[in-house]
């Protein structure tokens, strides 16, 4: 019953922090293109679930993941798979913009350099420019590539971080509440960027803003207390949810 078009197929995924079970067995198929939004109240496990896709939970002490997560049919929790290689293909953008304390150029060049993606300075320059253009930041920073990435505004930093992720040519971009630290104008720019990127990448976004989920996503998954309650086309979730709890959450009665 695995969806052949799925980028990720998850079966009975459980996550434990020590003795605490944060996710109680999630089954979901994430499509290869487009935006999938995870919504739900705080502590429902949506961020935890997001971090299983690039095995970022491995860096947390006492965190265990069980069940199966297939990416293009391959188990990403296979013991022989090095998470370092997985993360080069599954990029991630965090809640708080986290540019490295390096120049804008070096921020973008970091990934290509460690993975040896380019063989010459000119090639690297071109890749940096392409990534910044794709993130819609090139025109704003092209004259100050040598200046520190931490000197940019919050919205610019978040787009810089997206450009940094794009530079290693991932197939998937995970976004963990990427707009929660941004003002409405920066958020609008970020959403426009997501709109463009979804043609090329599989994007999974965790968001607290239901309006944002409704605006940017094609499919929406509603999580509640470590369970996946409902997963459907975004339009269906926001107009005609089939579960009462989803209904209550999107209309603001719980949350």
């Amino acid at each position: 019953m695995t969806d052949t078009n799925a980028k990720f197929s998850c079966r009975n995924v459980k996550v434990h922090y020590g003795d605490f079970e944060a996710l109680h067995g999630i089954d979901i198929d994430i499509p290869d293109r487009g935006v999938t939004a995870f919504i739900g109240p705080s502590g429902c496990g949506k961020s935890t679930f997001l971090r299983t896709f690039n095995r970022m939970n491995d860096t947390i002490d006492g965190c265990r993941v069980s069940g199966k997560i297939l990416m293009d049919g391959n188990d990403i929790y296979n013991k022989n798979l090095d998470p370092v290689l997985l993360r080069a293909r599954v990029g991630m953008v965090f809640q708080k913009p986290n540019p490295f304390p390096k120049s804008i150029y070096d921020n973008i060049a970091f990934g290509p350099r460690i993975h040896g993606l380019t063989s010459s300075k000119a090639e690297l320059d071109a890749l940096v420019e392409k990534s910044l253009r794709r993130a819609g930041l090139w025109d704003e920073v092209k004259d100050r590539l040598k200046l520190s990435g931490t000197g940019l505004s919050g919205g610019q930093q978040q787009r810089l971080v997206i450009a940094r992720a794009i530079a290693v040519s991932p197939e998937v971009i995970l976004m963990d509440e990427p707009a929660s630290a941004l003002d409405p104008i920066a958020t609008a720019k970020l959403e426009a960027l997501i709109e463009e990127l979804k043609e090329r990448y599989c994007i999974i976004i965790v968001t607290h803003s239901m309006a944002q989920a409704a605006r940017v996503s094609d499919k929406t998954a509603f999580f509640y207390m470590g369970d996946l309650v409902e997963y459907d086309a975004t339009e269906k979730i926001f107009t005609n949810p089939s579960n009462n709890r989803t209904q209550d959450y999107i209309t603001g009665r719980t949350g």
Binding site: N54, M56, T59, M92, F100, G111, V168
Partner: peptide, 8 residues
């Protein structure tokens, strides 16, 4: 986290 997420 940012560096790990890039596959460092």
């Amino acid at each position: 986290d940012g560096a790990f997420a890039l596959g460092a």
